[in-house]
Design a protein around this nucleic acid. Structure first.
Lengths: 271, 271
DNA sequence: GACGTTCTGTGCGCTAACACACAAATAACC
DNA sequence: GGTTATTTGTGTGTTAGCGCACAGAACGTC
């Protein structure tokens, strides 16, 4: 859907003096502009950060930080998906937020506090760019577009978390599974999601058997097909139909708060 | 518990030049320093805001803003308790966050977006100070202590919301009722809380009958007594014993992120 | 192709919370 | 002081999701 926007954008969008660097990036497989937040920065701020952005592989299952540990970096996912999870004393868990190419992990670095009582892990393999804490804070404290963008993103994140709270209370496992699948699908380039039902059960904070049952329904309805950790989204609008209102509330809020030009720009340049 | 701190504080804590105004305030029934955030400001910023702070009565049930409406003020509760609620399409609802004298309502004003998809209402009558949106933004954009304080508070708020999400998924109605009562008790000066079971059911997003049952248990245990909208906290440690871990996780995070000197200072001066 | 491992499917009893329908108690108001 | 509205209590049946215990199916690997 974001690709529809590409026709509206021209190569004039970013001051031309900055293009040589960027064009190399476009051709390379990894590019900071694959991340919406980085892509939304004005050229000046973007270029200032470019030197400091470190590309890191994010293998599935890797723990980015544990509850209470001091954060060292702010992560901007490009192809990976990260998960903020809270683990209860009794072994239970729940995903608090999903973070993919639309966002960043580690907001407590600039919000203050340096740490947060939750764990972050890689939920889907890929890559991310990261900034050292000090670099991030320096740039944030300039008080310019970067700061405003991060704050707006944090606001969107807050809405996501809020809606998760409401959803956990009121909606059925099946609806929540749809939400989970759509959120994941949104953050990947492909229709095939790599996640076992066991993983999903940890994310949703429900029994694995419950996921099996709900996923079976969705498969029988022809919306997805899956086998051993590989879920194929066959009929996305089917899922959108079965999901609760929570999904679109959050989606709308992200679209409102965060510029989404990056996909369009990226795709346009690589064609 | 905060009063224990008073012995550690001296009247030198705030530059003496600012006291005359403050002392008048101390004696008066309403004082901006009853709010933790305002109280934590350094004198300079506090004095700059003082002119703009408007005291407003907050009667029970009053709606501060509706979902999607543009916010006009940032509210700093002193004696009232506010509630951020999300109302579902099907009539269901859930409280997303409680806001009392420890915080502020309307963070999306400075985070960006100007609005948020939820409703805010007065859950317990009292007073609040408020700042006009523009004044708030001007002060926030100075980038000083006020900004940092608000950001830290927002971070704490985020933890509260996150924990609510987890709690909604995993814990029993009875545990959640305890959490609700403790949160309310923390934000009031008295042991008697004015809330009907119907109200609590809206807050928790459960059936009223469920609240009746859980409240009955707590009453039989001797932790509370209640009748027609008046709940008396008799044994607070009983509640703290029955509540889930979520309560203390959030409490600890607030204590870590937000200076709590105000109670101490206030009490010391009024003695 | 035999083996262990990792995923997924299914069945059964259980419980917390639900929906609905009233009854009882307390306060509020002419 | 009697009527009305609000709040709380109780009962009955229903259901979504839980816990546990396996069985089957797919994959890796040696």
């Amino acid at each position: 859907m974001e690709t529809n926007l590409s026709s509206k954008l021209t190569s004039q969008y970013r001051p031309s003096g900055t293009w040589p660097v960027r064009i190399l990036g476009m051709i390379a497989p990894h590019n900071p502009m694959q991340n919406s937040l980085l892509a939304a920065l004005p050229a000046e701020g973007f270029n200032r950060l470019l030197t400091y952005l470190e590309l890191v592989p994010m293998p599935f299952g890797k723990v980015i930080y544990e509850s209470g540990s001091k954060l060292q970096h702010l992560y901007f996912p490009t192809t990976c998906i990260l998960s903020k999870l809270y683990a209860l004393a009794d072994g239970g868990s729940s995903e608090i937020a999903v973070i993919g190419k639309e966002g960043a992990l580690g907001v407590s670095l600039f919000m203050g506090g340096e740490t947060t009582p939750s764990r972050a892990m890689v939920r889907s393999s890929g890559f991310a760019y990261r900034l050292k804490a000090q670099v991030l804070k320096n740039e944030f404290n300039r008080g310019g577009a970067f700061m405003q963008l991060l704050l707006r993103y944090t606001q969107a994140l807050m809405v996501q978390v809020s809606q998760t709270a409401v959803c956990n209370r009121h909606h059925s496992l099946e609806q929540q599974l749809c939400r989970c699948l759509l959120l994941t699908h949104d953050r990947l380039q492909a229709d095939s999601l790599a996640m076992t039902q066991e993983l999903i059960s940890n994310i949703l904070g429900v029994r694995r058997e419950g996921v099996t049952e709900a996923a079976g329904k969705l498969q029988r309805a022809g919306y997805i097909s899956y086998s051993r950790g590989h879920i194929e989204v066959i009929n996305r609008s089917g899922l959108e139909n079965a999901v609760c209102e929570c999904y679109s509330v959050v989606k709308t809020e992200y679209d409102r708060l965060i510029p989404h030009a990056n996909q369009a720009k990226y795709l346009q340049m690589s064609n």
